[in-house]
């Protein structure tokens, strides 16, 4: 029994002692998926890299925030923001009404991007009745579910591509910016096919609804990046020369 008591005591001490260090500056934890190149990915040095890393670091500099990067599975990325494990979601997340009910978004830092289908070269895809892959909890997944096609969901973006390659799905529906690299690298094995689908708004940073102060700071920083053209330049750099007019 004494052992148990001292264990609990040590635990309580640990729990409270961590409060002794005071926070220097305003530190913000940036949450991302780390599996969606070129938006965000883990590079070979084990660091978060990509378009959103550069945008995020620049935003933090302009808003005078100390930022650290954390990765989280896409599936639980919103619940973990809401429970306070990190302070922002910067993970290629389109601004939708459904998500806006649960969290708040800053203004967009990437314009609405039509989603596109990718299939094996020469495949004949039935977009309204075939088997289409998408990542779970994405705007593409809800679109397919309503289109009449058979939806197969995967937890990671990687798995959706693998499903098309091994024939489990006829095609994958995802953001064009993500698919472009994969199509280019596949050496003709995978091709864009069918119509582009315009769904979702632009991409914004998700913040807790109670965190208006952080949202304000990030909004101001995004505006300043739009005003001096740095955001346009970063989009062109990471998305194959894509032209935007912010």
């Amino acid at each position: 029994m004494t052992n148990m008591k001292s264990f609990l005591g040590a635990l309580a001490l640990g729990v409270f002692a961590a409060g002794a260090v005071s926070a220097a500056g305003h530190s913000v934890r940036m949450g991302t998926e780390g599996a969606y190149p070129p938006y965000n990915f883990i590079n070979d040095a084990g660091q978060v890299d990509g378009f959103e890393r550069e945008v995020g670091d620049e935003l933090c500099k302009r808003a005078a925030l100390e930022c650290t990067w954390v990765t989280n599975e896409w599936d639980s990325i919103i619940p973990n923001l809401v429970s306070g494990n990190y302070d922002t979601i910067i993970a290629g997340m389109s601004i939708t009404d459904e998500r806006d009910k649960v969290i708040d978004f800053t203004q967009e830092y990437y314009p609405p991007d039509p989603s596109a289908y990718v299939a094996l070269a020469g495949a004949d895809v039935d977009f309204n009745g075939g088997v289409i892959a998408a990542q779970a909890s994405t705007i593409q997944a809800s679109y397919i579910a309503e289109s009449g096609a058979m939806l197969v969901e995967f937890t990671s973006p990687d798995d959706t591509i693998a499903a098309v390659k091994n024939g489990e799905a006829d095609a994958v529906l995802a953001d064009r910016g993500f698919l472009a690299d994969i199509v280019k690298d596949s050496g003709g094995e995978l091709v864009f096919t069918g119509p582009d689908v315009a769904i979702g708004g632009g991409v914004g940073i998700g913040v807790r609804e109670s965190d208006g102060e952080l949202k304000g700071k990030l909004d101001a920083a995004i505006s300043s990046m739009k005003a001096d053209g740095t955001l346009n330049a970063l989009i062109a750099k990471w998305f194959d020369g894509k032209v935007t007019n912010y």
């Binding site: 729990v15 961590a18 260090v21 926070a23 913000v28």
Partner: peptide, 12 residues
């Protein structure tokens, strides 16, 4: 929402 210094571990 808890105050900044109550976070475990601290944000910083």
């Amino acid at each position: 929402v808890v105050c900044d210094i109550a976070k475990l571990p601290l944000n910083a």
